[in-house]
Design a protein around this nucleic acid. Structure first.
Lengths: 219, 219
DNA sequence: CGAATTGTTGATTCATTTCAATGTTTGTGG
DNA sequence: CCACAAACATTGAAATGAATCAACAATTCG
């Protein structure tokens, strides 16, 4: 879905081990990355302040789009598990205009999708209750882990509880308690980082999503 | 800043009165809008749920970028005060590739800036304390109202307290109390919607921003 | 296997929401 | 331009949800 014409400018596939950094503000900006496998987190590191997680990235998603304009990376992007990415070289300043129209169009469409996605995440973060924030987060991860095939019902959370709390603006303990509660209520069982979503409609409901159209075969 | 080559495809200037709707999901997608004056809010309206505000837009900012990919509007955008916008026609499906390289490049750069901005907003929303969320919000509005000239110290808030609370995931009363507190502490006086920021460094500090480089003239 | 990291749970404190009442602004028509 | 009503904003008191502090359990990784 994110992999049409953009693949034409892909130079090489790079593997990034858990804990390794893909970009940080001290690195020169050369390329945008397309996640092929694994998962990443984006961190905002301000000296003298607690590091803030501002996003997670799954296969099919592009990382570093915010760096194109200023041609410098604003954030640190770190692999949560062993992962791989492809580089999309952006060339020198001004060279963008010389790329093929198709390439640029693909880029614009991908960025439009990303802006939609970011706005949805803002909707998620701007919600009052911890329960809803966590439900929406779980639902979002379930969906994104499963590139395009609807929400996965069984998967492994690539990030720590602490990361989830940091991202959502909640204490780790709150995340833990809510997840336990989801287990007890039969919505999703969590054993360590292994997630099994047992009541997807309930989770979706809590997350505040509309029911997806019911695909009933005509009688 | 957002007004270089993009202005070439601007067709007409439209004025939108307070409370009027610029886009909503039932309208066909034709164009992206560049805010020229005034202010807007973006709403996510899900039937049977409280309307969620997911963003505000000020002069120089582009509205509707998330609609380019699916070629449909996902949100309702409403004017908070009497405003004006310019339309940037996006043409038919696929026509994007035929636009000039410069146009497309401008578009990509503008979208990159927007993605950076949205990520900063996510950092804002993913913060624990109400105080910090409101401080960061105020600082953001002060900056964006004053297109490019640094944060304004005197301006009129275009949105309701309720809108602020809705956006930040806080009760209206909390917003009100915090703002009163900022007044008492001599950080910013608020009389109705009129804001005067009296201690900008303190506000920036609370908002969790780094000090901007001090511009001392060489001695 | 064992140490270190990560995760859970309980008790308490504190911040924020909620409910309720009152004050203030804004916009309208006389 | 003033008076008025409606919309919006503030404040207080009580209830609640989430943070913090602290101890312990489970998982991960070398």
């Amino acid at each position: 879905m994110d992999e049409t014409l953009l693949d034409a400018v892909v130079s090489r596939r790079v593997s990034v081990k858990k804990g390794e950094v893909l970009t940080d503000p001290s690195m020169s900006f050369e390329a945008v990355f397309s996640v092929k496998s694994g998962a990443f987190k984006t961190l905002q590191q301000v000296p003298g302040q607690r590091t803030k997680i501002i996003g997670f990235h799954f296969p099919g998603e592009l990382v570093g789009l915010e760096a194109i304009d200023a041609r410098r990376h604003h954030y640190t992007v770190e692999a949560l598990v062993n992962s791989s990415v492809c580089e999309l070289h952006m060339g020198k300043v001004g060279e963008l205009a010389e790329r093929s129209g198709e390439f640029q169009q693909e880029m614009i469409l991908a960025m439009s999708r990303r802006i939609l996605h970011d706005q949805q995440m803002q909707a998620l973060l701007g919600v009052q209750s911890a329960e809803r924030r966590i439900a929406a987060f779980l639902y979002s991860v379930a969906t994104r882990m499963n590139a395009g095939h609807g929400p996965a019902t069984e998967f492994r959370l690539p990030m720590l509880r602490e990361d989830v709390g940091n991202y959502l603006g909640l204490a780790v303990e709150t995340v833990s308690r809510m997840l336990s509660q989801f287990s007890q209520r039969g919505i999703a069982s969590l054993q360590g980082r292994n997630v099994t979503i047992s009541d997807l409609p309930a989770l979706r409901e809590m997350a505040g999503h509309e029911e997806p159209p019911v695909l009933t075969s005509p009688s």
